[in-house]
Structures are given as C-alpha cells and as structure tokens.
C-alpha cells in the first residue's frame, strides 16, 4: 500500500478515526483507572465520542446550516442527528452529575475515592 492510499484512507474517514480513538481512550480510562472521579471523566470522553459520531454523520458535502431560505436549490446538512445529540448531551450531564454526587457520598462514607481502597475496606468488613 502506497503512502497516498494510506493517507487517503485516513483522511477520507478522518472523523471516524477521531471518534474511534476517543471511544477507546474513554473506555480504557473507565476500566483502568481506580480513581472514581477519573472513571467519570473517562465515561464523559466515551460519551463525547458518540456525540461526535452523530454530529459528523449529519454533515453533507457542500451543505449549509439547516435554516430554511427563500433561495431554491440549496443543500442543507441534516439537523436530526444534532437534535438527537442535544438530548444525549442532557442525558450525559445528568449522568455525570449523579455520578459525582455518588462519589461525594462515597468519600464521606469511606474516606477515600480509590476503588482498591474501598474494596479493601469492604473485604475487611466481610471477613469480620
């Protein structure tokens, strides 16, 4: 494969590469990090990648903002994915807020927000 076809393949689907990169980064952070706040941040990155997947999907070559104009023959970008993602963003904000509220309560109850320390405390309780 020549450099041109490789870079062509990368550029033609540039948005998807970015989305996949962010998606995997976010998921990895959620799985790997023991700090509960960092898990929430990872979850946010993961969700944001999906927002970008939708938004970039609505773009049409040469399309303008979907505001109805008197001039005929115009191409508009598809507004529906944008509208869907507005809803998904609201859901994401609610999830983050609830997640952080739970982290606050966990910190109050356990004195730590590190997953391994919390598990150690819980196992200690079970053994007693």
């Amino acid at each position: 494969m020549s450099i041109e076809t490789l870079s062509g393949a990368l550029l033609a689907h540039g948005n998807y590469w970015i989305v996949i990169g962010l998606m995997m980064t976010g998921l990895y952070v959620v799985i790997d990090r023991g700090n509960l706040v960092k898990k929430i941040i990872g979850l946010n990155i993961f969700q944001t990648s999906v927002f970008m997947l939708y938004i970039s999907m609505g773009k049409i070559d040469g399309g303008t903002a979907p505001i109805l104009d008197q001039a005929l023959g115009r191409t508009y970008s598809n507004p529906l994915p944008h509208v869907l993602i507005l809803t998904a963003i609201v859901v994401g904000v609610a999830t983050t807020a609830l997640g952080l509220a739970l982290v606050v309560r966990i910190k109050e109850a356990y004195g730590t927000i590190e997953e391994d320390e919390i598990l150690a405390i819980e196992h200690g309780e079970d053994d007693r």
Binding site: L43, L102, Y110
Partner: peptide
C-alpha cells in the same frame, strides 16, 4: 454505605 458503591458501579456499567 455499600449502596453508594453498588449504585456507582451500576451507573458506570449501565451508562
């Protein structure tokens, strides 16, 4: 207090 960690884990996996 384990309700908090249970809810948190469900939140992560559910999301």
């Amino acid at each position: 207090r384990r309700a908090f960690t249970a809810a948190f884990n469900y939140l992560i996996l559910g999301t």
